[in-house]
Nucleic acid binder design. Structure first.
Lengths: 211, 211
DNA sequence: AAGACAATTTTCGAATACGAAAAACTCTGG
DNA sequence: CCAGAGTTTTTCGTATTCGAAAATTGTCTT
């Protein structure tokens, strides 16, 4: 039986891509090889070779590198999936990308930033808006909600509801069916942060729960 | 100049943890070493040693393994603690676990909830508080900041600062050195959400940047 | 230019990963 | 208990990584 070699990734390419990534990371912080070596305990020569794709790091060196450079080990290996190293983005009040569903008008923050591991959303809901109370939201990951203004009634499929006032917050497993409604007063504004990437989240918003 | 060795991860431990992970992955799918070897092009002997922590894989073998086993390369390195399925928690305004550092008085939200993939924090900063502008915050992951009240001056090690007013927000790679200060007025209140687990975050808050 | 210093690259022995094949475990049925 | 097939572990020679130090390149300053 022949080993797979047809579409296996070219190790040289992989190495040099990783090398470029590491060099970019170092340059981004304005550090020298010496400084990286001091922080990580990896020798200068090795770092030099690795950055140029002439060699690759072993497992233990990757661990030390991640620890010394304060980078998540897994993030070092994430190709396009990570935010660009050193990326910084700002959004002014009201700068959102609107997205409407059956029950909500959502405003996605930073929807132009790629590789986010979290998705921040501003949700506004009015008391007079009709809602389909059967279409639970449900998606992988976790969710954090902070009430900016008004009173929020946070419903769960299998739990008692939560009534949250401005300044209150909730944290829950978002694979549970959940639903945001206006608790009292005319409207409520909520800042929601999901641990799910935006694309994944939008995929799931389309689906309808069917109880 | 001595290489860092005090708190560097024990390579043997790292190896055996990775080995256990890989063995579990293989067993879950009911595969033999031979089958994995065929799919990945890595020899049986090597796989055996790696699974038992007697050796570790080099970069190119990790690539082949991820491809052959249809797993995300980055996911192989993600240690997985997850929140209890179905968990729901609420916090009222002011219900925080205080944590003080050189520059900040932070309030952790939901610090009693385990397995969170995100860490929400309320940070309050007063204009009269003295700050060490050399001790940059730096930790793995990404960070989202939303200004609740006041004006925030968000400083970066290698980037121009951001001035954010109430309702404005920022999203950035938190492995970049960063620092929150009071921009104008008497004080600023910021809601910060990090994609880093709380324990990891606190570990890094202790450390001092040394430029 | 030349010298001085910082940063990077190259060199080269020791340590480690790697694959092929041999040896040592499992199992199962007779 | 043995036989025999399937699976895992061990052995051993080759290839690669690794760190220390030397050599090179780059960047100021005079």
């Amino acid at each position: 039986m022949e080993p797979v070699k047809s579409d296996s990734p070219d190790p040289v390419d992989g190495r040099s891509r990783m090398g470029d990534r590491l060099r970019a990371l170092r340059r981004e912080r304005g550090m020298t090889l010496q400084q990286v070596a001091d922080r990580t305990g990896i020798s200068i020569g090795t770092l030099s070779k690795v950055e140029r794709g002439l060699a690759s790091l072993g497992y233990d060196r990757f661990e030390r590198l991640a620890q010394g450079m304060d980078v998540d080990l897994a993030a070092l290996f994430a190709e396009g999936a990570t935010i660009a190293p050193g990326a910084v983005a700002a959004a002014r009040q009201g700068e959102v990308t609107p997205h409407s569903t059956e029950n909500y008008d959502l405003g996605f923050l930073f929807s132009e930033v790629w590789g986010k591991t979290m998705t921040p959303v501003i949700a506004v809901h009015r008391a007079d808006r009709s809602m389909n109370l059967d279409s639970w939201m449900r998606h992988p990951g976790q969710e954090f909600a902070y009430v900016i203004e008004g009173v929020l009634e946070l419903l769960f499929e299998n739990r008692p509801p939560l009534r949250l006032c401005a300044g209150d917050s909730a944290y829950f497993d978002s694979s549970n069916g959940h639903l945001y409604t206006c608790g009292a007063g005319e409207q409520v504004t909520v800042l929601v942060v999901c641990s799910t990437p935006q694309e994944t989240l939008i995929d799931h918003l389309g689906k309808r729960g069917s109880n």
